[in-house]
Design a protein around this nucleic acid. Structure first.
Lengths: 117, 117
DNA sequence: CTTCATGGTTTCCAAAGGGTACCAATAGCA
DNA sequence: TGCTATTGGTACCCTTTGGAAACCATGAAG
């Protein structure tokens, strides 16, 4: 249905778009893209600027959508490991396309933005 | 990047990411990706669910970043045509990667989401 | 019995998103 | 002379989301 593509608010494609279009989701995928598990605090440190509340929301939403797993260890202090699922790992492809574009064109965009003042 | 990639909030790449990660920006690009100009009302109708305020914000921001042009005709009733710049057209590549992923994996995501209830 | 680390939660506030109403300008009509 | 219709937005208001800061439960270690 290339028609309307994602133009219908209820189109499932658009629902998916909303999730992977999220800034923090992209950064979480980048952080976990080597396939290794990371703990909550690790993620928080690596993704500079994210607050714990928003990180929790993002991780829970991604887990709900099958993009990552959340493994809780019954230890003290608590240990929780997040890792991408095979599905989550496939997100690397489109995300790389985005970051490649951003890196290639950031100068032009910033120049346009500066000129618009 | 590879280090830091977009992990620094002030990293220009992340600024660009914020813009093209926006839901409405993606839909505007899809709407204009055939290279033809569209009027404000046309865009509003094609992108189901967007309010005029948000559409205006999106279009102005994209124009500021050099992704599209806004051509005003001195007519009554007013006519304003939006069209992608060459830079804006190059956005099709990463966006297609995203929509392809979404279409390919929407079933799996929705299944995971349903199972999580 | 105090301290420390972890993985959050709670509270509060500001910013963004979104719905609805409205407007300016003029051509065409009556 | 009104009256209407069209277009591309604004203005206003309310709800939702994002974010900063503080707090919390647990139990092992000191």
């Amino acid at each position: 249905m290339k028609h309307g593509d994602a133009f219908d608010p209820n189109c499932p494609t658009r629902l998916v778009l909303d999730r992977i279009g999220d800034k923090w989701t992209v950064l979480v995928v980048l952080t976990l893209s080597d396939g290794n598990p990371r703990r909550f605090t690790e993620l928080r440190k690596m993704i500079n600027g994210v607050t714990p509340k928003v990180l929790t929301q993002t991780l829970r939403a991604m887990a709900r959508d099958g993009l990552l797993t959340r493994q809780v260890f019954a230890e003290v202090p608590p240990r929780v490991e997040y890792r991408l699922t095979p599905l989550g790992l496939t997100l690397q492809t489109p995300i790389k396309a985005i970051t490649d574009w951003a890196e290639a064109n950031v100068d032009e965009v910033m120049a346009a933005r500066a000129a618009a003042l």
